[in-house]
């Protein structure tokens, strides 16, 4: 199956109202070029699942500024004042999730689990409305799984089968998101032939990746 597509072919996988997981931490390890394309195509009413909303002029931060989001499920919005502004004006629904719980919820979504029991957030507003359980004398919150229609990943290298290699802190949420969406698209800096990556160096197996867009190093 041919997985490599051009940026021009990408919009067929967008739809208004879709849920989308985007890899990256403060824009690092984020598919910046694909996000630019989504801004250009004005895809709207998105539910974004991402670690943070970056800064106003970078990556997913631009989706906020361009008012393309209906909801954001993130752990941090402090570096993008526009997110807070839209949240207070009730234009954007923001669900703040502790970072480790966000990672676990995405993992659960991709791993066939019904959720995860975590002590994170016990005794805080995070536990409101959630099932709590006492296991062996310790209290836990049930955090439910997260999945999305589309996951947008960023990798340093890919082969044509979709096997991915990330670089330094660019890895972050990408490996978990590769398992947790119906359509997984990776923006990659470099594409190599199948067989050129050492099997031991592959961080995300290619079977999880549906499409690859080669963008170089970006700007």
């Amino acid at each position: 199956m041919e997985k490599v597509i051009s940026m021009e072919e990408l919009p067929q996988y967008y739809s208004d109202g879709m849920s989308v997981m985007v890899g990256g931490f403060m824009g690092v390890g984020q598919p910046i070029e694909i996000v630019k394309n989504m801004v250009e195509k004005q895809v709207k009413d998105l539910t974004l699942i991402c670690n943070d909303t970056a800064v106003p002029d970078l990556g997913v931060g631009t989706l906020v500024v361009n008012k393309q989001l209906k909801k954001a499920i993130v752990s941090h919005i402090g570096t993008n004042p526009e997110t807070g502004k839209q949240m207070i004006a009730e234009e954007l629904d923001v669900e703040l999730v502790p970072q480790g719980s966000l990672a676990e919820r995405i993992r659960a979504g991709g791993a066939g689990l019904g959720g995860v029991l975590t002590p994170t957030g016990v005794g805080t507003v995070v536990e409101e409305g959630k099932v709590k359980m006492n296991v062996e004398g310790k209290e836990y919150i049930l955090e439910t799984p997260l999945r999305a229609d589309v996951a947008l990943l960023k990798a340093h290298k890919a082969d044509k089968a979709g096997n991915l290699v990330y670089r330094l802190t660019g890895r972050n949420f990408n490996p978990m998101m590769a398992l947790a969406a119906d359509m997984v698209i990776a923006e990659v800096e470099e594409l190599v032939e199948v067989g050129e990556l050492e099997p031991d160096e592959i961080m995300t197996p290619g079977v999880l990746v549906d499409k690859i867009v080669v963008c170089g190093k970006g700007e």
């Binding site: 919005i77 703040l96 480790g100 719980s101």
Partner: peptide
């Protein structure tokens, strides 16, 4: 031993990031 360091209602809501995980773990 309770800790508050992630938000001031109505003023500053940056999100908890990794702080809630760090303090329990």
């Amino acid at each position: 031993g309770n800790l508050a360091n992630w938000m001031v209602p109505g003023k500053m809501v940056p999100g908890m990031g990794g702080a809630m995980d760090l303090v329990v773990g």
